[in-house]
Design a protein around this nucleic acid. Sequence first.
DNA 1: TGTATATGGTTACCGTGATAACTATATTGT
DNA 2: ACAATATAGTTATCACGGTAACCATATACA
Lengths: 145, 145
Amino acid sequence: MFFLKELPTQAMINRYSEDYFPERSEDVAKKLQGLREYSTLIRKLEDYFASHNLSQLRFLVMMVIDREPDRDHLFAHEITERLDVSKPVLSRAIKKLIEASLLSSKKDKQDARAVLLSLTPTSKELLRSILPGYFEILSAQSNSV
Amino acid sequence: MFFLKELPTQAMINRYSEDYFPERSEDVAKKLQGLREYSTLIRKLEDYFASHNLSQLRFLVMMVIDREPDRDHLFAHEITERLDVSKPVLSRAIKKLIEASLLSSKKDKQDARAVLLSLTPTSKELLRSILPGYFEILSAQSNSV
DNA sequence: TGTATATGGTTACCGTGATAACTATATTGT
DNA sequence: ACAATATAGTTATCACGGTAACCATATACA
């Protein structure tokens, strides 16, 4: 998250940065604007997921299982490979999804440590119902990015 | 933060979204890419601030005081107007900055509720020392944004 | 075979977001 | 003047990131 509401003017950035990178101060202005716009977008997404008793992370966990070709399940460590999130955080997100009947887990037969995770009918239906709103937010022109 | 490492291909997005917004699925792809890139950038910034015993928020609190024209102080509620963060979070950030001698506070004479916040010599020096690295990260081309 | 190492996942703990509700002081309006 | 309302800031509590350390099981290899 990037909190700054009123971005510094180009003049202000120049004043701060001209000692270091005068030739790149426009890049800085552009990046700050991007940070702000994407922070706003992330807020909208999180609000949207929250209104469906989800978080962005829990949504993405379901998505990466759903989008997996040729298989209807993933192991937790495979989800870790696909999402930039720490193991404990993922572990907790999975636990909540299971409690909400949005994931089902099954012990693997080859590896007693591993757990197979798959979507439930409920979560497949939920995914279908929230995707339109998700794409709506992502494609909205109001986010001037 | 947006966690998805491998973004969906355009074909995958089309498959998911064509029922809803076929004409805007390229916008969706672009937004997802932007989200990912800015999340990476925010991670870099947070790591950088952490290496200086700061957070992005604490840095921005100092910055908005420093950049204020004609005054060397701000009230907490003025900082709230400038940063998109809740009052309690700001309150805690200010408390930590004061404990670290990076902010000094003084009761206002007109309004007994309000507290004047200004930078200390230490924090002015700290700001000057971390700004080059901050602009370096923001202007780096590696963030392909 | 059995010991060291690697891997899958969880637990414990901390930092930092949020909201609701609170205290204290200012302001408004009759 | 004083009751109602608004404002400045804090406290309590929760959600959800992170790292370090920990089980349990698999794998490597002497």
